[in-house]
Design a protein around this nucleic acid. Sequence first.
DNA 1: CTGGATCCATGATGATACTG
DNA 2: CAGTATCATCATGGATCCAG
Lengths: 231, 231
Amino acid sequence: MARNVRTYDHFCVLARALEAVGDRWSLLVVRDLLSGPKRFTDLMARLGGITPKTLTQRLRELEDAGVVEADREPGRREVRYQLTPAGRELRSAVDELAGWGWRHAWRSPRSGEVIHAEHLLLVMSQVLSHETGDRRPTRWHLRFVDDGEYTMEDDGEQWSMVSTAPGGPVDVTVVGTMAAWADFVRDPTTARASGSSADLELSGSEAAVDRFTQLVGQFRQAVASHPSRRP
Amino acid sequence: MARNVRTYDHFCVLARALEAVGDRWSLLVVRDLLSGPKRFTDLMARLGGITPKTLTQRLRELEDAGVVEADREPGRREVRYQLTPAGRELRSAVDELAGWGWRHAWRSPRSGEVIHAEHLLLVMSQVLSHETGDRRPTRWHLRFVDDGEYTMEDDGEQWSMVSTAPGGPVDVTVVGTMAAWADFVRDPTTARASGSSADLELSGSEAAVDRFTQLVGQFRQAVASHPSRRP
DNA sequence: CTGGATCCATGATGATACTG
DNA sequence: CAGTATCATCATGGATCCAG
């Protein structure tokens, strides 16, 4: 008789947690739902490489575990998946793992590796939270015409990111394409000086925009100079 | 061409971390090494259900990821596996996941579920850290004649556990078998009153032993009254 | 005895195509 | 849009065996 591969049968809280969210892809689904509710196809797009079969299975398992709930309204095609309160409580565990990943498992992107706005902003939150000294309550609004709308926020303690419009006054607003944003992260001055259609529009007070540019620059440098284990 | 199942190819720190420690069993290996170095067979005993093939594979992968290092000394039979500094930095992530597991994924032990001293002490650390108000620097020394030696310690911020002898003065020393300890956790007064060979020896000041008994009792109650999702 | 390696069976995942 | 169906491949578990 084969043991159930979905359990560990250990008397251990960590094993229990991993039975709920330790399967391949599970925590990445949680990651993408931490920034807000998503539809099945939204998740498919962000979880590059997952198959619909596996995504369906993970969503069902996460529902059973009380981590995810599906919002199905009659008369509406879309199903909106969102985290339950228990699921939202995974944020600190995800942050700790992400922080460790940045410090010890980072590597430069491989060719063909798709860069999603949300994931870039997640790395950025980690780096800005832990590797810059310039901290004060700050709110940025980023609108990617081809990849949704995000708010990045420093409450003075840590940076976080959600995929909704800001819930208060913003210091800087960024509008443009995802590609322009990637360019800007790669080299702020060039991207800003160029007059091409790939430009980003930055608005806000001069001081706030300067600080934004500076922090993005620090992030860029951190990524560039990171002692990746496998470059 | 099949994608490599061991990578996600996301530009994402969390995905990078999960490529290193997200495989089945990996974080449980880290869990068991967080309390100190272990031999292959020690790990086999604690990771109930893992096969030697899988454990070998996980250890090699964790070595490649820079999380684990093998200490092979010439002329010595044993191989001692231990965490690297990067591996030790996984403690906070493991703690966060374990805390979530206690709050949202706990269930009573199934019949046949092996209880290991270390794992019981890990749950206990979580519960004492987060569900009791009675906090002060405390150090307990537990010697299980059949399952090693452990130190549990509250630095005033949180409880932790290592599988070594204490590095300082202890408030309470516990000596006995694993079974006696399990009995004691189940019902302190009965186990203590009984004169059977299953007894635990508790030593320390009367106040310290009383407090120990009381905290274990709180843990026992927490486990008993826990609103398990699947009892 | 420790620290594995080998063989086979089964379950989990991926690729691709298709449907209500 | 939100999945199913089918087939192929890979990872894991169970059992057994082996070298130092």
